[in-house]
């Protein structure tokens, strides 16, 4: 891969990571079954999924970009899907509440009425189907973004340094860029989102621009460092 194309790979990958967080249904208050979404911070869940994606992508380092991006996306999707299912099992059998959206009247995919199972005084609980699908889509975007950053950084630095060291450095930089871009949406999501059906999803362009700027700065630093090496 040409160094300039690799630089654009870092920028596009980093921006995708930022945008993916808007799709992943999360809420810290979800741990008390008081809001819809997986019970942790959006950034942290996106990071957890992205890390599995990076790990899977690393296995396919020598098998081409397409397979690497696909394996990154699938591993991230698997992580979010399993976490959503197990979280819903916990809500069902540990807490005794049904997955319900606090913001939607009806589920966009199943058509189930949401207010029917909503605990009074809460903003929803669990992960209804619309949030599940949104989370899986977000994980796919994040997995592709993380793998693209990893591959781009690896191709930038691998001609100058030994392969095993380049993999490690590319992995650490990919984790760093993933977490930097994963944190930025926190300022628009403020710790809670139901995914693409949430009102806050309209703020995605803000995240897009901020992550674009951040990824460009990060990419230029990595590019400059690889040129110096």
């Amino acid at each position: 891969m040409d160094p300039i194309i690799a630089l654009f790979g870092i920028i596009i990958g980093g921006t995708l990571v930022g945008v993916c967080v808007h799709f992943i249904p999360c809420s810290a208050v979800g741990a008390m079954a008081a809001t819809t979404g997986i019970a942790t911070g959006p950034t942290m869940l996106a990071a957890g999924a992205g890390m599995m994606g990076l790990m899977a992508a690393a296995y396919n380092l020598d098998n081409g970009l397409a397979l690497m991006l696909a394996s990154g996306a699938i591993a991230s999707m698997l992580m979010i899907a399993l976490t959503s299912v197990v979280a819903n099992i916990t809500y069902a059998f540990g807490v005794g509440v049904a997955p319900t959206s606090g913001q939607s009247e009806y589920d966009r995919f199943t058509g189930f009425e949401q207010k029917q199972c909503l605990t009074p005084g809460t903003d929803g609980h669990g992960i209804p189907t619309q949030s599940f699908i949104s989370g899986v889509i977000g994980a796919a975007i994040g997995g592709i973004g993380g793998a693209l950053v990893f591959y781009s950084v690896y191709t930038l630095i691998s001609p100058s340094i030994p392969s095993s060291t380049a993999v490690a450095i590319a992995g650490i930089i990919a984790v760093g860029i993933y977490i930097i871009n994963g944190v930025l949406p926190a300022y628009t999501l403020v710790g809670k989102t139901e995914g693409m059906t949430d009102e806050k999803f309209k703020t995605t362009p803000k995240t897009f621009y901020s992550c674009l700027i951040m990824s460009t700065v990060s990419g230029i630093f990595v590019y400059a460092a690889s040129v110096v090496i």
Binding site: A31, M32, A33, A39, T40, T83, A87, T90, V95
Partner: peptide, 11 residues
Amino acid sequence: SSTGDIHYGSE
């Protein structure tokens, strides 16, 4: 944080 803590925090 996403799964087991629900049982502690909610129940």
